[in-house]
Design a binder for these strands. Structure first.
Lengths: 223, 223, 223, 223
DNA sequence: CATGAATGAGCCTTCATTCAT
DNA sequence: TATGAATGAAGGCTCATTCAT
């Protein structure tokens, strides 16, 4: 987002100001097509998704679509690239939070917020590790991205463990699996019930369950 | 010829006993086809899966396949029906366990064991609530099945809550979401790392994390 | 041809007699499709030729066509393979003729006869060396075939030169170019005038002009 | 602005003199586009040749191309028109040669020289009578042109026959077919071997073979 | 019934042509 | 008038389904 705005500003500040127009139109087309692709791929699996549907959804002809992308595959990949870029851009501020547990919360908020905004497609795409569907055609970058996200979680959890804030009898990697699963559970539930309440609101519950578990506590729950 | 006569005799000799040979042969075909379909659908998405591949995998002709099923859709649905039947049959004993938490453990074991046996396809199919892929074409029954499973979890958790074994400040439904998510997390992790260790072995860790959470305990771990 | 008949006979003479039927049906389809392809490719250039037209001409569906050939390219190649096989089979007897000049005549008759039977397509394909169109996509084999034909001509001419029947002041290869060109000229003329008289009837004139040239002879025309 | 005014002035200043600048600019565009079309059509068959490639080769946009030609077909036709015009312009001096056989030689030289200069495209186009490819889409004018060329040959040969320089036992038309074929043979050979030696150098051999044939001569070869 | 070839609707992709800037 | 992006008709190919043997 920030980057984008900067670019636009930069262009406007230029003298002639001519190139931006065409470029912005081109960008607008690309974005519109990707937006439509997002809708269609969220609705139909890769194979079932029709190029003509994407074009129709974008309000352009198929020919135009092919002026911007090589083909179906490339559209799909571009979708992933854009999504990941957006996600990590959004995630960036959260990673600067000092305290591990607070950082964790920030990460969760961003992740759930992103999924909420992106809806079904990136639910599957970024947070979910679906063994099927979209991820099946996971390009290198997609796999890398998952691994990157996992490492972020693991790293943060390790810090918390070292601070004595999380148990050390289980590997941080295992804790990450658990946290990731909890998120998935709530995302899925949210999708199932029809996306009523904001997904981000699940953050405290997820963290509470992640930290304290489901068992009754005699004395204090947590800080 | 001889074989033929024997077969006929066999049928005649059994009055009301076992199902007629012909039926059993038919069933054998159906099962073989479904087995193959399972392999193929686990490998390719619905649209990408080819009827001819399923037939080839089963060692029958496509014509034969169409003698047993109406079409692709029906095969897919039958696969779901069979899978769910198997799952609930396997789950049945676990449901008889008296103590809620022990029952929960039994349910987890069966669920994870089933997923392990079924591999990728039903990982997606039964445990995962994927908003995408296979489940997207979820027929009524599939949705019902998920709801049924959810209710089993919720019911069991409610019993535990009533017994004071689980916290009562969160709805049992929420706890179910969490538990379900934890399972998903570990299933996914297991798929990602290449199905090395038995998935069922994750049961204790899942339960431990579900019950006690990730926070360090000063005194006793759990009761 | 001979080979083909033998095969059929062989099959019929077998006991069960089953395989031949299906095989012959398959062969019949293949041949029919190739026949149609010949018609279409003779009418339209490679790119302009439509698969659906070939299928329609053959009276089959496009799907069927694809059961017999991988695609357009393969059909085109198969057409060449078949044509060359037929041509060289037909040419074979001519090559056994002892006297070089008589052999030359035999070769011309076969060549022209073949072109006459095959019509336009193989006019372009086998005798003509068109720098364009069909030959442009000349596969290895096609080029080989042309070279083979050229060598046959050159070899025969060399023998005649050695026997003192043809002039030795020009390379046999040059004579072959001339003879080949003469044939082309008459083939083309024949095509232009609408294929009225049998093309084979040009053989004597071609040979006469090839041997004696266009200049008036005072005494005897030729030996 | 300045430029614009100058242009206008220029136009006004020339009354009936040279063609207006605008026209010459237009012509330059047309010629450039045709030059490019020649390159592209020589490389790809009609159907395979892409308008965008022609435009790119010419260094203009497709839109511009369409300002000068109605479409693909028209470009192709214009190419033929221009080629024929050039050819007959080049041929004109040769037709003035008095002695028929010398005129024949001049015609051959011009024809082969033209083909050499034009390369593959007009090899197919003008000299070849290909039943295929380019010529298949032969417009009226193309056919006319071929007929015209044929009549020139026939006429010249008839004169030579009447002078007793060529045999009279064969129709001049037949001799023309032979001569035309000989040329084709050598053109093709030239193309096949990779256009090494100048094609025009074949003129004497062609004529020698045309006139004297391939048979050994006891006494004198020719005058 | 089993077989497997025939069918043809449907989809991705290309490219000649148009048209707004 | 030059530009080049938008358009959409058309064609190669796939594959679920049917059906004659």
């Amino acid at each position: 987002m920030a980057v984008r705005k900067q670019r636009k500003k930069a262009k406007k500040s230029e003298k002639g100001g001519r190139p931006p127009l065409r470029d912005r139109v081109k960008d607008a087309y690309r974005e519109a097509i990707l937006d439509s692709a997002e809708v269609i791929f969220a609705r139909d699996e890769y194979q079932a998704a029709k190029i003509s549907d994407i074009a129709a959804e974008a309000g352009v002809s198929v020919g135009t679509l092919y002026n911007y992308f090589e083909g179906k595959e490339e559209i799909f990949e571009a979708l992933g690239v854009r999504g990941r870029a957006e996600f990590y851009a959004a995630l960036d501020p959260a990673l600067s939070v000092e305290a591990p547990l607070e950082r964790l919360e920030a990460i969760l908020r961003v992740t759930l917020g992103f999924l909420e905004a992106k809806g079904a497609l990136f639910a599957a795409y970024t947070a979910e590790g679906g063994s099927q569907g979209a991820i099946a055609r996971g390009d290198e970058e997609e796999i890398e991205s998952r691994e990157r996200y996992r490492r972020i979680l693991v790293g943060t959890l390790e810090e918390a463990v070292e601070l004595g804030e999380l148990r050390s009898d289980l590997p941080a990697a295992t804790l990450a699996v658990a946290l990731s699963g909890l998120m998935q559970g709530f995302v899925e539930s949210w999708l199932t019930v029809g996306r009523t309440t904001p997904l981000v609101d699940s953050t405290p519950v997820i963290l509470e369950l992640f930290q304290s578990g489901a068992t009754t506590r005699t004395s204090s729950g947590r800080t």
